[in-house]
Simulated scan of single mutants.
Amino acid sequence: MLTYCLVMSGTPGPNNVMLAMLGANQGYRSSLPFIFGINMGLFLQTVLCGLGLGSLLLAHPRLHAVLRLVGVAYLLWLAWQMARTRTGTQARAGRQPGFWQAAAFQAVNPKSWIKALTLGAVFMPAGMPPLAGALLIGLVGWAIGFPCNSVWVMFGAGIRGFLADPRRQRAFNALMGLTLAVLAVSMLRT
């Protein structure tokens, strides 16, 4: 379970692409609410999947397919917004996504659903009361996810100096938007 959480939390996906961009555009400290929101949303998603929501989605493939399509459509819209993000002082002065946006985003993030469904279906501890088991796998996901998310933000913050040139920052934002779009389209195949 630890290895699975590390791979899912540390590899590129919609959350991590957005975290790298947030780090580059606004730094680590300003990105903390978004990191906490991602982890809270994933925690709740994992607990609910451990308590049976995952079984409901697996039993109703059409519901799962609709959720996937809505998630991919939202990711494509978000990719477009990321690619168009303003640079420099204008970007920092604009409305930045925070805790609640990040937590709610997990409901349409296909990679988050894959992680939560797998944790709930494969890693629920045998012989443990369902709520306790669901809370345990949710907490393990949080404990692994938070540092992984922080690394992505620190990567973005680390390249801020390089992105001081507005042309580079626009190119970076466009690249992050394109990366998110590619990830979204690839999720249609899973």
Rank of each mutant, 00 (worst) to 15 (best):
residue 150 S to Q: 09
residue 75 L to P: 11
residue 86 R to L: 09
residue 44 L to T: 11
residue 22 L to D: 00
residue 88 G to Y: 01
residue 90 Q to G: 03
residue 69 L to R: 07
residue 115 K to R: 12
residue 22 L to H: 07
residue 102 A to R: 12
residue 148 C to P: 07
residue 61 P to A: 09
residue 5 C to F: 01
residue 31 S to Y: 07
residue 170 R to Q: 15
residue 113 W to R: 13
residue 124 M to T: 02
residue 130 P to H: 07
residue 17 V to E: 00
residue 28 Y to N: 03
residue 179 T to Y: 06
residue 63 L to E: 00
residue 90 Q to F: 08
residue 81 Q to P: 04
residue 85 T to R: 15
residue 67 L to N: 02
residue 6 L to T: 12
residue 185 V to W: 09
residue 64 H to W: 08
residue 112 S to P: 11
residue 157 A to S: 14
residue 35 I to D: 03
residue 163 L to T: 09
residue 32 L to T: 13
residue 32 L to S: 05
residue 8 M to T: 07
residue 136 L to H: 01
residue 129 P to S: 11
residue 87 T to Y: 05
residue 148 C to D: 02
residue 84 R to A: 14
residue 100 W to T: 12
residue 9 S to K: 12
residue 42 L to T: 04
residue 82 M to D: 03
residue 46 T to S: 04
residue 4 Y to M: 02
residue 59 A to P: 11
residue 24 A to G: 12
residue 108 V to F: 13
residue 100 W to Y: 10
residue 86 R to V: 06
residue 135 L to W: 06
residue 36 F to C: 15
residue 173 N to P: 13
residue 190 T to S: 15
residue 140 V to P: 04
residue 132 A to G: 02
residue 170 R to V: 08
residue 132 A to R: 14
residue 125 P to S: 08
residue 176 M to K: 08
residue 58 L to S: 13
residue 61 P to F: 00
residue 178 L to N: 03
residue 134 A to R: 00
residue 183 L to F: 02
residue 100 W to L: 15
residue 126 A to S: 12
residue 70 V to F: 06
residue 42 L to S: 12
residue 51 L to F: 07
